Simulated scan of single mutants.
Amino acid sequence: MGWLFLALAIVLELSGTVSMKLSDSFTRLVPSVLMFAFYGASFTFLNFALGYMKVSTVYAVWSGVGIVLISLAGSILFQEKLSVPSILWIGVIVLGVIGLNLSGKGG
């Protein structure tokens, strides 16, 4: 159940970050309101996930997967360019999250 809550938290955090970009510095009402709603829901599900999982696992996966997804979203939705070094460093983050979980300290 913890992984389901964590997945929901990640999707909602991604939605909140996309909404933040679309809010255009709070000049657009609907994306601005959605940003707060998505972030609030994301933190709620993150809190539920913490009831089942260790904080190190939850936060590492939430932030690591979030970085990967928002980088992809920025590239696809907002035509932001990802340089080769950026992609490589994102890969290092992913490896770190995997390593944390495999080490037994994270989960």
Rank of each mutant, 00 (worst) to 15 (best):
A41W: 01
K105P: 09
L77S: 11
L69Q: 07
G64I: 05
G2I: 03
G107I: 14
G91M: 06
F5C: 04
G40H: 00
G64S: 08
L82W: 11
F45H: 00
P31F: 01
A37I: 13
L69V: 12
L100G: 04
S86Y: 15
L102E: 13
W62C: 03
P85K: 10
V65N: 03
G91T: 07
K54T: 06
Y39Q: 03
L69A: 11
I10H: 00
L95C: 12
P31M: 02
A49V: 02
I67Q: 12
S25E: 14
W3V: 01
A73E: 07
T44E: 06
G40S: 05
L72W: 09
S86L: 15
V30E: 09
V65K: 03
I98R: 05
A60P: 05
A73C: 10
L12K: 01
P31E: 02
S103G: 11
L95Q: 07
D24G: 07
A60R: 04
I67G: 10
L88K: 09
G16T: 00
F38Y: 06
V97W: 06
V68Y: 10
V92Q: 09
Y39K: 04
A49P: 02
L72M: 13
G74H: 06
S25Y: 12
S32V: 03
W89H: 14
N101V: 08
I93D: 04
F43M: 07
S56R: 05
V92K: 09
L6Q: 00
F26V: 14
V94A: 14
V61H: 02
V92C: 13
G74I: 09
A9K: 00
G51F: 09
P31W: 04
V30T: 14
P85Q: 13
F36L: 12
G104M: 03
W89R: 14
V92A: 11
T44M: 11
A60E: 06
F48V: 07
I98S: 04
S15M: 07
L29N: 10
A49N: 00
M20I: 12
I93V: 15
K54E: 08
